[in-house]
Nucleic acid binder design. Structure first.
Lengths: 179, 179
DNA sequence: ATCGAGTATCTTGACATCGAGATATAAACG
DNA sequence: CGTTTATATCTCGATGTCAAGATACTCGAT
C-alpha cells in the first residue's frame, strides 16, 4: 500500500532521526523539563560524530588520519611559506598544547612538517609544511569536499546558506570571546 | 569612528567566526576549488568541539564525565526499569562495541549501572541503571539544559526551529540508513 | 537433528587525547 | 635595571577510544 516516488517539494519531506526519538523519550519521562535545546545541540554533536566517521573513511584512501589532515590543512591555508606557530595551530584545531606537541612530533617523523626556531621569539617555534605534506593536504582536501557535497546534496543552495548563517551565530561567541 | 550599540534587528548582526576566516583563506590559496561545503560542515565540527568542552565543565560540577552522562541518560530515557542492551546503547552513543564494554565496566564499578543476563537471549546482556545512577543523570541533565539555553539565547524561537529542521535533513540519512 | 550464516558481546593492543605542571623567554613595572 | 607577571612550548602519566578478532549463542534451511 506504500506509494513511492510521489512528487512533492523536497522541503516537505520530513524523515525522523535519532534526536526526534530522543526528545520524544525525554518528554515522556521528564514532562516537567523543557528539552527544546536538545533539538539543536544534540543534532550538532551527533552529526559531528557521523562526520568524523565518514572523514576517517575518506582520508584512509590518502593514508591520512583526520587529525593529520587538520594540522596539514591549517598550514596549507596559511599560504607560502606554509608555516604557523604551535599556538596558532591550537586555536585552529581546538586541541590542547600537549596534544599539539605530540601531533607535530608525529608529523615531523613522517616527514610532512618540520620544526624551525622562531627568529623573533626564542621561546617560540614555527611549524612548516614540507612539499610532500603540501601535496598530501591538497589531495585529501579534494576528496573531503567531494564527500561533503554528497552529504549536503539534500539541501538547496539557499538552505545551505541559511544553515551556515544560523550556525555562525552559535560559533562566533566561542571563536571571538576567549572561550 | 566606530558606533557601538546601534539599534538594529538581531538578525542583521553578523560577527565573523573562525570558519569565515578559514573559507577566505582557502579562496585565496585554492581559488580553483569550491569550498562552500565547509561553510556548513566545518561549523558543525567546530561547534561540536566547543560544546564538548563546555559540557565537560558543566558535568564536572556533578562529578560526571561526558561519556558517563551519555550512557546514563540513554538508560534514563528508556523509562522504567531503565535498562537497555549494549547494542541499543551503541546506536544511541555512536561508539564502537569495545568502547561500550569498557564504559559499562567502569560505570558498574562506580555503582551507577549493573549488568543482568538477558532472559530471552543467552548471548545478550541488559544494562540497568541503579537508583544512584538515575539521580545523577537527572541532576546533570538539568545543568546541561541550563547551559544549552544560554548558548542558544542569541537565536529566536523560530530560528532555533529552522536550525533544528535543517540539521535533521543531514542527520536523518545517517540515523536511518545503516550508515 | 545438524550445519552454517548471522548476531551480540567481550578481549586485546596500539595509540591519541587530556590536564597539570615544568622550563625558558619576554614584557611590564616601579 | 631587577623583580614580577605573562606567554610559548614541552613533558609526563592516566585514561578513553578504536579496530580487529575471539567467543558464544540463535535461527533458518536442509
Amino acid at each position: 500500500m506504500k506509494r513511492l516516488h510521489v512528487d512533492r517539494p523536497l522541503t516537505l519531506i520530513r524523515m525522523e532521526d535519532e534526536v526526534d526519538r530522543l526528545v520524544a523519550a525525554w518528554r515522556r519521562e521528564r514532562p516537567d523539563l523543557d528539552v527544546e535545546p536538545l533539538e539543536v545541540l544534540s543534532r550538532v554533536s551527533r552529526l559531528a560524530r557521523h562526520l568524523d566517521r565518514a572523514r576517517r573513511l575518506a582520508f584512509s584512501e590518502h593514508g591520512l588520519e583526520p587529525w593529520e589532515f587538520d594540522v596539514l590543512t591549517s598550514l596549507r591555508r596559511a599560504g607560502a611559506p606554509y608555516q604557523l606557530s604551535p599556538g596558532q595551530l591550537l586555536t585552529q584545531t581546538l586541541v590542547t598544547s600537549g596534544t599539539m606537541t605530540n601531533r607535530i612530533d608525529r608529523l615531523a617523523k613522517k616527514g610532512l612538517v618540520e620544526r624551525l626556531p622562531d627568529p623573533s621569539d626564542r621561546r617560540g617555534v614555527l611549524v612548516r609544511l614540507t612539499p610532500e605534506g603540501r601535496d598530501r593536504a591538497d589531495q585529501a582536501l579534494a576528496g573531503l569536499l567531494a564527500q561533503e557535497r554528497a552529504i549536503l546534496a539534500r539541501l538547496s543552495q539557499s538552505q545551505r546558506g541559511d544553515l551556515a548563517g544560523l550556525l555562525r551565530q552559535l560559533t562566533a561567541p566561542f571563536d571571538n570571546i576567549p572561550g
